[in-house]
Design a protein around this nucleic acid. Sequence first.
DNA 1: GGCCAGGACTATG
DNA 2: CATAGTCATGGC
Length: 301
Amino acid sequence: MGFVTRLELKPAGVYSFAATTRRLVSFEKSAYQVRDGRLYRTLRVGGRPIVVGLGWRGEALFAEVEEVLTPAEEEALTKTLRRMFSLDVNLEPFYVQMEQVPELAALVRERNGLHMVLDPDLYECLIKTIIGQQLNLAFAATLIRRLIDLAGEEVAYRGELLPVFPTPEQVARLDYADLQALQFNRRKAEYVIDLSRKIVDGSLDLTSLLSLPDEEVVERLLPLRGVGRWTAECLLLFGMGRPNLLPAADIGLRNAVRRVYHTDAQPTEQEVRQLGGAWAPWSSYAVFYLWDYLSQPETKE
DNA sequence: GGCCAGGACTATG
DNA sequence: CATAGTCATGGC
């Protein structure tokens, strides 16, 4: 205790912390926890796990860490949090554009200030996305939590132990049967462990993807067993925060489009791609708002 | 109780 | 190429 590091991070434009974090506790119950009305999540800074308390005060994201951080660690944490909470994304041009899309204008307006929350790193994003393939979100969250409890470590915080998302090394040490015991299917157990082992032995370097354009990232990822186009697009969306992704085959997106555009049948991937043409260069945010609409159709501010 | 979940792989025409 | 079957289980 004793020493506390406090950070105040101002957003680039209109920002609703309430709308942005509303979905975290239910969808990401594996990672975010609420204590006393405050949001907490464990993160690695310079390899060591810490607990970050998050809130909104005045016009800024307020982060608090009960640790002594070096200046370099503090800078790294600041950078991570700005990226995770999309604090540098100014949505004004998106909002202006969506006013011209009749089907989306109202639901976008209702979600004023809603930002994407990214995963802290590409590995966590990749593993969570693979686990989520084809499963309903609730069950996916259960499996993710079980993986964290099995493979990850814990960090002590105010008298309790909080789970930390495992490193590739920690997952690489598991056997397929360990994950099957958690009710992963056999193939998914292989994907998760094999990809972790590739990262450990150096044959897969996710950070090298950061500098590549979207399509090249997809091309590099597709040969990996367990990674299809949808998974690669999710990594671009929730790992990197790329602004113009359209995972048109996504079942949730297609359901949302069906509701919002009032098509009688579920639209095909091609039809979604066609409708989504009007969303560029903000497709990622249009998709994200549609996903949010799907899970909370009558959200009010 | 059947069918679908914010898919991907594999085997078969 | 194109399609069907498979996977584990929760929720509706």
